[in-house]
Design a binder for these strands. Structure first.
Lengths: 203, 203
DNA sequence: GCCATAATAGGAACACGTTCCAGTTTGTCC
DNA sequence: GGACAAACTGGAACGTGTTCCTATTATGGC
């Protein structure tokens, strides 16, 4: 039997048997459910295990820590968000408009589920280097979404595009943290992000 | 006897008796010492209490949580850093150069003490709204340092300057987190920040 | 079908943040 | 100096993330 790739939630290959895929899915489902109900603190390892109908030790075999678990859950949610955006062209006449559209849409999605967003953002911020793989995957997805919005024609983004996307991603993350921790309202967050986008993408 | 303003580390007034000021100082000293030795995990409340020679309950009377404690310690360190920069003019011919100088200097200072930086950054990122006061104070200090570097002549920064400073602060924070969590090297961090500064301050 | 091995269940045990309490010390007011 | 309140001490106790152990159950090769 193949081993579980517990440290890489986004690899499609080598996910083990159907039973294992199902356990993994149940665990992530339980995580999202609990996070959506009560945020970071409500995601308790014993509770996740119980709701997913696995033993505590099994949960830790699949995800070596609560942070890995939450970041993996974030990765799966992002995959879905990206997939749902993949085929439709992004509306907007300028790069700024298109990027803002994507950010607005993504942010609104997150802010519609504050507890979930709080849990996932916290986990993301608290992650150490052992979660680097998962974090990197999420970062790449965000970068892809942004560069495609900036330059829908191009298949391969330029180095400049990537640098710009990273800055926007940084602002996005900081804003999200400020919102999650109650230091900024949703409106302030949106305004600040929009302003930053127009600042780096003058068009 | 006046009560301790345990939730606002930066207020100068109302710090209580000399004995209380001394206890507070000993606690923050112990926090910084432990953080510098082993980072976030090494700052353990029982250990801080022991090293500061106070009871655990007393520690919690002064700082209601580990996060408050660390963020307050970060605030004290920032006060010192800003005070040491206050009177010297920032070298550099353009706003970019001056901002990069300030960031380099600050970042180098932080990176010279990785464990301490890890502890303080992590606390900062993990803070919730109950720590908003302390967080806001730190953010204002950073903003002041940056706007002064951008525009040394002006006494009051423009709204644009503040917006730019916020974006730079966001990138700085994200980069610091990436460095602290081992996802980026010190060099990558510095390069990314520099590039972002030149992106928003084209001069 | 049988065996070897890996995976899982169930739960005890440990670490550390946090809370709480009884007794003692310190500070204040008269 | 005495009385009262506030602060402090020392330590027990609790919750949750994490580890560990044993018995049981699935899995894959022959």
């Amino acid at each position: 039997m193949s081993t579980i790739t517990s440290t890489n939630s986004l690899a499609v290959e080598d996910l083990g048997s159907a039973a294992q895929r199902d356990r993994r899915r149940r665990i992530l489902d339980a995580t999202i459910t609990l996070a959506a109900q009560g945020g970071f603190d409500a995601v308790q390892m014993r509770g996740v295990a119980e709701q997913a109908d696995v033993a505590l030790g099994t949960l830790y075999r699949y995800f070596p820590s609560k942070i890995h678990l939450l970041v993996s859950a974030l990765g799966r949610e992002f995959e879905r968000a990206e997939a749902s955006l993949k085929d439709k062209p992004v509306p907007g006449d300028t790069a700024s408009d298109r990027v803002i559209y994507v950010l607005r849409k993504t942010t609104r999605g997150l802010q519609g589920d504050p507890h979930l967003t709080e849990a996932l953002t916290r986990a993301f911020m608290f992650a150490d280097s052992t979660v680097a793989t998962e974090i990197h995957a999420v970062g790449m997805q965000l970068s892809t979404m942004l560069t495609r919005a900036m330059d829908p024609e191009r298949t391969e983004p330029t180095e400049d595009d990537i640098a710009i996307a990273r800055v926007i991603g940084d602002v996005w993350l900081s804003s999200l943290v400020a919102w999650v921790t109650g230091r900024a309202t949703a409106n302030e967050t949106a305004e600040h992000m929009e302003r930053a986008v127009r600042m780096v993408l003058r068009d």
